[in-house]
Nucleic acid binder design. Structure first.
Lengths: 245, 245
DNA sequence: TATAAACCATGACGCAGCTGGAGAGTCAAC
DNA sequence: GTTGACTCTCCAGCTGCGTCATGGTTTATA
């Protein structure tokens, strides 16, 4: 039986953290002496190790609690989700690093800020709902969206923007060039993974929407350079024709 | 002159956030109507864009304030530092993703927890201070350490551990194999970048310390496999001999 | 056996960067 | 003059603890 200080030394967590974990019911001491001292046995230590493991993986404490408390919990799925989240974060960081490098070169005054403006996405989402609200793809999208945290959503928006930014950079090239086609594939895969199964047909539908000439087209062009929306559409057309002759 | 809601729509930040930025003095409205309404002009909007840019790059609001308020501030250096931090975070995420994947495979019960135990690092740091406290390397180390946030420190500890974990994985190989030597170079570069200029001589000194047989050796071996400390030492010796014949 | 050192407790406040709600005032339009 | 959209100022709360403050408990030593 070990008291707080010793547990702290063994595991590297602070005494305060142990208090905290007791408070929120994440790790209760095995026994408490009449004087109120917390005592932990080896089982508790093991639990603490598990807690620290999941904490390191950036699981919220709440979730760690449910993971450890319900043995029937699907840990594999939780891990899978967390891997997705961490990967998303990692990719986001890569974008940010690029951004910071660029910023260092050209200075803040010459920066293009439109690239962060994810504010209109909800608007377009509403439009999309009106148009496609009944399709199975949209339902799949809604299903997946429900489960996401706001953080995840934010990251996804950003990633989506980055994909278009990349198209903007490539828009001098021919739509059928290998580099551009790779980017189309990336877009399709991204949508499939995070939003809904994106068949070539669906992708083509999206393409026509992007280049449709409405607010969305304007918004894409404004953020990534004139003609980007149309360029993406052309690239998508090539992509779909090549794969389905 | 725009009121909060309109600014919110234009930039995607919430009204509440504008209030917050006003409170902390990060973005004051250009004027305030007699009724207390906040009004922002284009200059303010521009400042807001800059704020959002740096916020996206994960600068703390405090720092954003000083960056924007003092034109003499060395932004380039600040960006450089932030790039380092973001890179560190990215690499840490890569480690976590690997960890999560491993965990998914072998399950939580077969995990090796020693890899997170960065708790003894402070202890060894104290020892190092006693031994090397007067050397210029140690002073450089102290200088750099002072400027770091706890988050950064944590990430550095973790990265350091990962470097050793990698040695642990390679410890069946010959110390003079290319792969191992690359890893030594990584270690040297890492130390040079984040702690102090690590010449071959210094590196060799570290090596003897690692394999010295004390608590540190035991700790390294426990976390990464028996013989890792000695293996690292041998690898370092080969490295230094090859480079300085 | 007294007392100091080391350890333990609770409780409250603080941090960052906000979000959300209550309750009330303001403004333009119909 | 009333509706509805907008605005304001508090206040509470979130995560995961750090950091006192204040006081009780245990153990080692004198």
């Amino acid at each position: 039986m070990k008291a707080v200080k010793e547990v702290s030394k063994l595991t590297g967590v602070s005494v305060r953290t142990l208090h905290h974990y007791d408070e929120i019911g994440l790790l209760k001491p095995t026994t408490v002496t009449p004087a109120g001292y917390r005592l932990y046995d080896d089982t508790a230590l093991e639990r603490l190790q598990h807690i620290l493991l999941f904490r390191e993986l950036e699981f919220p404490l709440r979730e760690i609690k449910t993971i450890l408390d319900s043995p029937s919990f699907d840990r594999s799925r939780a891990l899978e989700q967390q891997i997705t989240l961490l990967t998303l974060k990692k990719e986001h960081l890569e974008n940010l690093i690029d951004l910071a490098r660029g910023l260092k070169m050209i200075g803040v005054n010459h920066m293009d800020f439109t690239a962060f403006d994810t504010s209109k996405i909800d608007e377009y989402a509403a439009q999309a709902k009106a148009t496609y609200g009944t399709t199975p793809e949209y339902k799949e999208f809604e299903q997946k969206s429900k489960k996401r945290t706001s953080e995840e959503t934010r990251l996804l928006h950003f990633q989506m923007m980055s994909l278009f930014t990349e198209f903007g950079r490539l828009r001098n090239l021919s739509p059928d060039s290998a580099e551009v086609q790779v980017q189309v594939k990336k877009l399709q895969d991204f949508i499939s993974e995070y939003f809904y199964t994106c068949s070539n047909t669906t992708l083509l539908g999206l393409g026509t929407m992007y280049a449709g000439g409405g607010d969305l087209t304007a918004s894409i062009d404004k953020a990534n350079g004139d003609g980007t929306a149309e360029f993406v559409y052309q690239a998508i057309r090539v992509f779909c024709e090549e794969r389905e002759p």
